[in-house]
Deep mutational scan, measured.
Amino acid sequence: MATGGRRGAAAAPLLVAVAALLLGAAGHLYPGEVCPGMDIRNNLTRLHELENCSVIEGHLQILLMFKTRPEDFRDLSFPKLIMITDYLLLFRVYGLESLKDLFPNLTVIRGSRLFFNYALVIFEMVHLKELGLYNLMNITRGSVRIEKNNELCYLATIDWSRILDSVEDNYIVLNKDDNEECGDICPGTAKGKTNCPATVINGQFVERCWTHSHCQKVCPTICKSHGCTAEGLCCHSECLGNCSQPDDPTKCVACRNFYLDGRCVETCPPPYYHFQDWRCVNFSFCQDLHHKCKNSRRQGCHQYVIHNNKCIPECPSGYTMNSSNLLCTPCLGPCPKVCHLLEGEKTIDSVTSAQELRGCTVINGSLIINIRGGNNLAAELEANLGLIEEISGYLKIRRSYALVSLSFFRKLRLIRGETLEIGNYSFYALDNQNLRQLWDWSKHNLTITQGKLFFHYNPKLCLSEIHKMEEVSGTKGRQERNDIALKTNGDQASCENELLKFSYIRTSFDKI
């Protein structure tokens, strides 16, 4: 039985969820670079991206490699990797027998973001014989899940209580170790020597080791999670996991709180800001991140802002960003909400898709409305799209047979046209069989910064309504002859009103 693990408890099935942008060198404390989270699957090609990484700022997932063999891993080693800020997950990587050479110096898994409450997941690794993470000293947050690894031993010899604050939620089941077939031998045991430290858990006094050649490092209890030197002297209180010299914040392997210019500090002093819960960055760093993602459509890219001495992905609820200094300031009234469309555009074809934009005031991208039916549609669209004030790209209304009016965009005031449909149009209306009105132009103002209007096959939309939009939106004169079809717009509506004058002759039985 794995020490510190839980057996036999019912657990939810383990679901495996399925960018080499360097964020800056980590400095003297770390020998390499800070790398983003990685999802490495199918083959070993991307694994080489770990070569210079000291910190993975995010998670590391290595999974679904069915053609790899043990010899493929023999020359692979990433000794610079010290810390993973989120979680480490391995799933069905064939041929991998140990992690001792792959990650010989991995010391800390912070667990800032977890995989279903777990910071370390080893699942269905069919050839893994031992973990071998002999320098792993601290899992700051989260638990361990090690399950269905039929060859995995050296679990009962690990004292997880020396690595985690609590072992109650560890789930370590259905491994070879369960069948008591392992016969784990710690260093020196074969020669009758006791080389590794022994600890007591559940009444068992057991030597602690990761492999037959690597003991588990056990520091004096007084050192807590700070770690200790090879001689057993406690590291500085700002260290986490390990250090090369005692009581020196510049000799830590990793930091308990924050890293700044080669030393570990309790908090980031001005003019620095907390970033990702582990390091200090200056304003320029946060500003660069903001600008890199301002026009990016890459998933996970955030326009970072500053709030409460932190550089964070977005302002919290009730705050909006001051564009001059990136500071989050309290909103006066309802907060603006910028919604970034991942692929640059979004099609609204149902109430469900409209709900995804609920509360958005600025759309960074283009909207395509293609709704053919739905219950209580006008009210639903207004509830979900009615706060949109600005669209950076274009607005396209296409084959939306259920629409009679666009009044559900009740606050839309600006279409920038930074991206144009077919390279020309910022407003595009095609084949809307029941569209009769755009907006009530006596109450609604709309500016279209650039781009043209396109109207074709809107049989109940009168040309007068379209011409009014040209005047109000500032697009009059931009359109070419064929942009607004004269014969297919309003051709099934009563669009022309003329005053009919009647004269009559009164007659009676005795007068003409």
Rank of each mutant, 00 (worst) to 15 (best):
L29T: 14
E33P: 13
E33A: 15
C35S: 00
G37D: 13
G37K: 04
G37H: 05
D39P: 01
D39Q: 15
I40T: 07
N42I: 07
L44V: 12
E49Y: 09
L50W: 03
L60R: 00
L60T: 01
Q61K: 14
Q61A: 03
I62D: 00
I62E: 00
L63F: 03
R69D: 01
R74Y: 13
K80I: 06
K80R: 09
L81F: 01
L81M: 13
T85S: 08
Y87C: 00
L96H: 00
S98I: 03
P104N: 00
P104Q: 01
N105V: 04
N105K: 04
L106F: 02
V108W: 06
I109G: 00
L114V: 08
F115H: 02
N117M: 11
Y118F: 13
Y118L: 04
A119K: 00
L120Q: 00
I122E: 01
F123P: 00
F123L: 14
M125K: 00
H127F: 05
L128Y: 01
E130K: 13
Y134V: 14
M137A: 07
N138L: 10
I139S: 01
G142A: 02
S143H: 14
N149P: 01
N150E: 05
L152V: 03
C153A: 04
C153E: 02
L155D: 07
R162W: 14
R162Y: 09
R162V: 10
I163H: 01
D165V: 09
E168A: 06
Y171I: 13
Y171A: 11
Y171M: 07
L174P: 13
N179A: 10
E181H: 02
G183R: 07
D184T: 04
G188R: 07
N195Q: 09
N195K: 09
C196Y: 03
P197T: 10
T199W: 11
V200A: 11
V200R: 10
V200M: 12
N202E: 09
V206F: 15
V206C: 00
C209Q: 02
S213Y: 07
S213V: 09
S213A: 04
C215F: 13
Q216N: 14
V218E: 11
C219H: 09
P220S: 04
P220A: 01
I222W: 15
S225F: 13
H226Q: 05
H226F: 13
E231G: 15
G232R: 04
C234R: 01
C235G: 01
H236L: 01
E238T: 12
N242G: 07
N242W: 13
C243I: 01
S244Y: 04
Q245T: 05
P246G: 09
K251I: 15
C252S: 00
C255S: 00
N257V: 01
F258Y: 15
Y259C: 14
Y259R: 03
L260F: 05
R263M: 10
R263L: 11
C264Q: 00
C264E: 00
F275T: 03
Q276F: 12
F283S: 05
F283I: 12
F285S: 09
C286V: 07
D288I: 05
C293A: 06
C293K: 03
N295L: 11
R297D: 11
R297V: 09
C301I: 00
H302N: 06
H302K: 01
Y304R: 03
N309M: 11
C311Y: 03
E314R: 11
C315T: 03
P316S: 02
G318S: 11
Y319P: 02
N322F: 14
S323L: 11
N325K: 03
L327K: 15
C328F: 03
C328M: 02
C328E: 01
T329Q: 15
L332M: 13
L332V: 02
P334H: 13
P336G: 04
